[in-house]
Design a protein around this nucleic acid. Structure first.
Lengths: 343, 343
DNA sequence: CAATCCGTTGGTAGCGCTGTCAATATTTGT
DNA sequence: ACAAATATTGACAGCGCTACCAACGGATTG
């Protein structure tokens, strides 16, 4: 009694090979290096596979070949718009390649990140993309042991685990606040939510710019660990106004907060930018549409995801990029909400 | 020469078993049914695994056991806010379970969906979650052959592949437009972008409500296949105004468009709702914050993702939910933008 | 005291595929 | 025409783990 099918009734490579009249290993090669087969066999295997509806067993392939074609991705949030752009870049780039994406959500917790990293370890991914540069030392040792290309995204900094694509949040925020100062604003508040490491670095940029102009005043700062939202922007702004009624501008840790501030100004009949100027961070799509249009710092989120995948896949295939750390920079988008003439 | 390690230097179950002084199969059981071991062995294996830093090989496990602990998820977009909420529900629910999520992006293409479905097939997922009810017949036959629980989400309709969690987009839009009509609005425009099947069904609800009140007029309709955005809302609205300057309300296919309409009204000094009323769809977070606050239809997106995972995991484990089709309903959130007294 | 049971443990035999290397056709160079 | 190089193919031996079933010891029963 010869076995013709797998227990579950699936067709195996052996069946395809038999129908095509070749050895199993030749059939296997057809799926990996078709150009190594003669045209004749190539066609025979192709049509046999099609006829039987053959679907390769990835687990068997992974076990036998000791590798996978999966790139693991760790991001802190699925709600924050910022990451959906990064993800889009990641998925777009992965579609052109042989690799598929395995996504996991750390929820802004470095402990959760550690746990997920260990989970990934068991999967032996071909590459890894992680968000930020603030991993625990335990996480770093897991990554070191993983023996695959790793890209850190969103930020750049010293001491990369392997590769990096990002930009300096501190410098970007510094530029935005310096712009406000150059426009003559002096009592510039700062609103921050979530306060993940990137928002903290943006706050650092704000602080440095304010100190450099001798304008720093801790009463101008309102932050919360609560996740960001438009509504929260209004709430934090109300808070700021009660603590420092003399403010003439607000620098927001992100664009959701900025939009919330704008709405709150409309609610209170505060004119923007005449009474209060607003700048956001990230330049989400709606910022240019708002009335008045809102100044922000454009960040290359899509490109960040795309390059991370490109760099990792290149590294997997042995073509490491010459420069392991890529600074994608930022661009200050000056709009009505921060222009003294309200133009 | 005995082999002590795998080629790549990883620790195998055999090494753990040897150190613990048990057979490999007992060590294996420790990871699957620890309660079947005596307390003594359980502890010995646990400490041996920890000491060696053992990481199980998932590919080998999947091959030997003929199953995986992966739930595949197919969604049409990573940019659209709507799906980030669904995803959050999916990831949250999966974290409480033993299953991990494999996400793929169809980009609103049913052909891409077909391709991805075949890719998933090779992975033999334990369960599957797909968006919508408009799969190709080829896709359906792949799903039929996959032999795992499948949930269709976002919509409900006749003839489920297996299970369904969603709501009627037509009914929800019908309710929103009926509300406008009840408020006395008559020249109600419809703006739609992306025009995926769900937006088309919302349009159907608009059309039915307008026809029922003998208010339907094709000149009131502006749609585009272009992906949605706030800016696009303004553009479409400008278009609508030029085609039908006498409109008194706008029903938008989603909230981004609604916000764009609001901004365009502000830009043109059109008062909302006195001159023009606005309703959106989905009730994204910012709708309640806007000035005036924007009426929308609240949909249970997070819950949709959550229940889909719950239903699928239950089905995997043999506890199929009694009712395979779950209607999560919707709630009309009436706010200032559609209230005749502007309250 | 033998028969029966249950909780626990181990042995055997693959899961479906691919790496390695040898074997066989085919072509090329001189 | 013959050796050497090159293209194409196949045999073998696992990859690391688990399903299945047998075996064991001790407790329970009549």
């Amino acid at each position: 009694m010869e076995r013709r099918r797998t227990k579950s009734g699936e067709i195996r490579l052996t069946e395809v090979a038999k129908l095509a009249g070749v050895s199993p290993i030749t059939a296997s090669r057809f799926f990996r290096k078709p150009e190594a087969l003669s045209v004749d066999k190539r066609e025979r295997v192709a049509s046999a596979a099609k006829e039987l509806g053959y679907v390769p067993n990835l687990a068997a392939r992974a076990l036998a070949s000791q590798r996978t074609e999966v790139i693991g991705v760790l991001i802190p949030s699925l709600t924050n718009n910022v990451f959906s752009d990064v993800l889009r870049g990641i998925y777009d780039a992965s579609e052109g390649s042989r690799y598929s994406i395995q996504l996991a959500n750390t929820r802004y917790s470095i402990l959760q990140e550690e746990k997920l990293l260990r989970l990934f370890q068991a999967q032996k991914p071909a590459g890894l993309i992680v968000t930020g540069i603030d991993q625990t030392s335990e996480s770093r040792s897991v990554m070191d042991s993983m023996n695959c290309p790793i890209a850190q995204i969103m930020e750049i900094g010293p001491d990369p685990v392997d590769m990096m694509v990002g930009f300096s949040h501190r410098d970007a925020a510094f530029a935005a606040v310096s712009h406000l100062i150059a426009q003559g604003f002096q009592r510039i508040g700062f609103l921050g939510a979530q306060m993940d490491p990137r928002v903290q670095r943006r706050f650092g940029g704000y602080r440095d710019a304010m100190k450099a102009a001798s304008l720093f005043d801790p009463r101008l700062i309102v932050t919360t660990p609560v996740p960001t939202s438009v509504t929260l922007g209004g709430t934090l702004f109300a808070d700021l106004l009660s603590k420092a009624p003399d403010i003439d501008a607000v620098s927001c840790g992100n664009d959701d907060l900025a939009l919330g501030v704008l709405f709150e100004c409309q609610r209170r009949q505060i004119s923007v930018p005449e009474d209060i100027a607003i700048v956001g961070f990230n330049d989400l799509e709606f910022m240019a549409s708002a009335v008045p249009s809102l100044t922000s710092v454009r960040t290359n989120r899509y490109e960040m995801g795309r390059s991370a995948v490109t760099m990792v896949t290149a590294a997997i295939e042995g073509n490491r990029p010459p420069e392991p750390v890529v600074d994608l920079g930022f661009e200050l988008m000056i709009r009505q909400s921060s222009s003294v003439r309200g133009a």
